[in-house]
Amino acid sequence: MNYASILILLFLAVTFIQSGYDKVSDWKGNVGWLKEHFAQTLLRNSVPLALFIILALELVAGIFCVVGSIQLLTNGERNYGFYGAVFACITLIFLLFGQRIAKDYDGARTIAIYFIPAVMAVYWLG
């Protein structure tokens, strides 16, 4: 049993499902803050669409990570966990792109910290 992979998948699941929940529960507040955050960038007119894309990616990643954890625990299969880790990496790359465009280097650094375990999961489960 690959306990490290299960723990990373659970970490990613909590991260992305909670983040998705936050976006849904305070959509208006998130859009307002992000419009300000991206006011001086090429993303300024695309904030609601970009936020929706990120929300969808986060939920897909989170759900795949939950299902992948269960799959690893029950039958040792890795495909859903792998997909969850890949979607997590894609989501984090999108988020990193946004932070770099906004010149929020501290935010970009934080995303890089999340990227490390996500890539480890892709490697271990691939």
Rank of each mutant, 00 (worst) to 15 (best):
T91F: 04
F11N: 07
L43C: 13
M1C: 08
T41A: 08
E58Y: 06
G76R: 01
D104L: 12
P117T: 02
W33I: 13
G20C: 06
F82N: 02
L95C: 10
G84T: 03
I93K: 00
G84A: 10
A112G: 12
T91R: 01
D106M: 08
Y105N: 14
Y80L: 09
P48M: 06
L10V: 11
Y80W: 14
G76D: 02
G126A: 08
M120C: 13
A118H: 03
L125R: 01
I6Q: 03
L10C: 13
I54K: 06
G76P: 02
N30Y: 12
K23M: 11
T74H: 06
L43G: 05
I17L: 15
L95P: 05
S46E: 11
G20N: 01
C89T: 04
P117V: 07
Y3F: 10
Y21Q: 08
P117W: 03
I90G: 04
A88M: 00
W33E: 13
C89D: 04
A4G: 12
I17E: 10
L92W: 06
E77H: 14
D22R: 11
Q40A: 14
Q40G: 03
F64L: 11
F87K: 01
R109G: 13
N45T: 04
F16A: 05
L73Q: 09
E58K: 01
A85E: 00
D26T: 14
G32W: 08
F115G: 06
L72Y: 06
Y83M: 06
T110V: 11
Y83N: 07
N79I: 15
I111C: 10
L34C: 09
G107H: 05
A108H: 03
Y123H: 03
Q40K: 13
G98I: 00
V67K: 00
I54N: 15
D106C: 05
Y105E: 13
L59W: 04
I53Y: 12
A13F: 03
V60H: 00
C89V: 15
Q71K: 00
D104Y: 06
I17W: 03
T15L: 13
G68Q: 05
R44M: 05
T15V: 08
S46T: 08
G62K: 01
V119L: 15
F94I: 14
N30L: 12
I93E: 02
A85Q: 00
S69P: 04
V119R: 02
L73F: 14
G20A: 02
W27G: 12
A85Y: 07
G62C: 15
A56V: 12
A88P: 03
G32S: 14
G126P: 02
Q18C: 09
I8F: 04
A85S: 11
Q18P: 05
Y105W: 15
F115S: 00
G68R: 04
A112T: 13
E58T: 02
F97Q: 15
L42T: 14
I111Y: 00
I53G: 07
L12H: 05
V66T: 09
A121S: 06
G81K: 01
L73K: 07
I116W: 07
V122E: 00
I63C: 15
L49M: 10
E36G: 10
